[in-house]
Amino acid sequence: MTFLIISQILNGLGLGMLYALVGVGLTLILGVLNIPNFAHGVLYALGAYLAFTIANVTGSFYFAMFLSPLLVVLVGFILESQGVRRLYHAHHDYQLLFLFACALIIQEIIIIIWGPIGFSLLAPPSLSGAVDLGFLIYPKYRLVLICFAFFMIVCLYLFLTKTNLGAILRAGIENRDMVKVLGINVNVVFLYTFGLGAYLAGLAGALSAPIMGLTPSMGLDILPICFVVVVVAGLGSIPGAIIAGILIGLSQGAATIWFPEATNVVIYVMMGLTIIFRPQGLFGVR
């Protein structure tokens, strides 16, 4: 039983790290830009698909992991500068409609380019297979994923707390008008924020590909989870999104031990409890 619990904790951590990455990305966009990014899931899918193609063309998995999120950033830049920017003053309904339209378009483009059938992206030989930790056997790639995602989250945290741009982003979440007053070019800040959010979504997608494979609908599958992370965390809280993401991953892991049928439901139970007992979210201030 102990080894089962430990392995479930590892599983939950791996999953939770992915949720945290996409969740933080969405939180940034939601918090700074104040738009409901329904295209977030499809950026995640795009990250996975681009990584697949890059890995196949260049033969390098690591290069794919490096390049594909950056290409997703490019797509994010296009979305922001060509569409979203014109909608900052519109109501949320139009923003939502537009972003969902973009999600539909990108998802269908994925089907047109890569076909409707899913793919596998294999981890490189150095990362595939399982390691014997003494008390349990665990896939190498998952261990690396946990460490790497943790490293990325630490980097992100340092970026947000120790750099000027990070400070501006955080200020943007707290009070957008203040940023304008300070004479900072808001358009640039928004563009970078959207790009950073897209980067995190794309990265999570690329990292998840060797575990979960690729399908055109993967973006739609992850989207509700992103929003639950945001609700549980409290809108606009970055540490909240990290912790909520990991918590949700862990509780899914726990659910599989005792109620395997309920692994999806547990997410929404957590959210329901949050809404009832702490409506502003675990770390929410607003």
């Binding site: 609700v231 809108l235 009832i276």
Partner: peptide
Amino acid sequence: YFCVKREGLYFICLTFAFNQMFYFI
């Protein structure tokens, strides 16, 4: 009762999440 306490994006997120909850029920 739970949703109208919040505005804007949070209202969207809450209704969205409630929807998913009922779907899974």
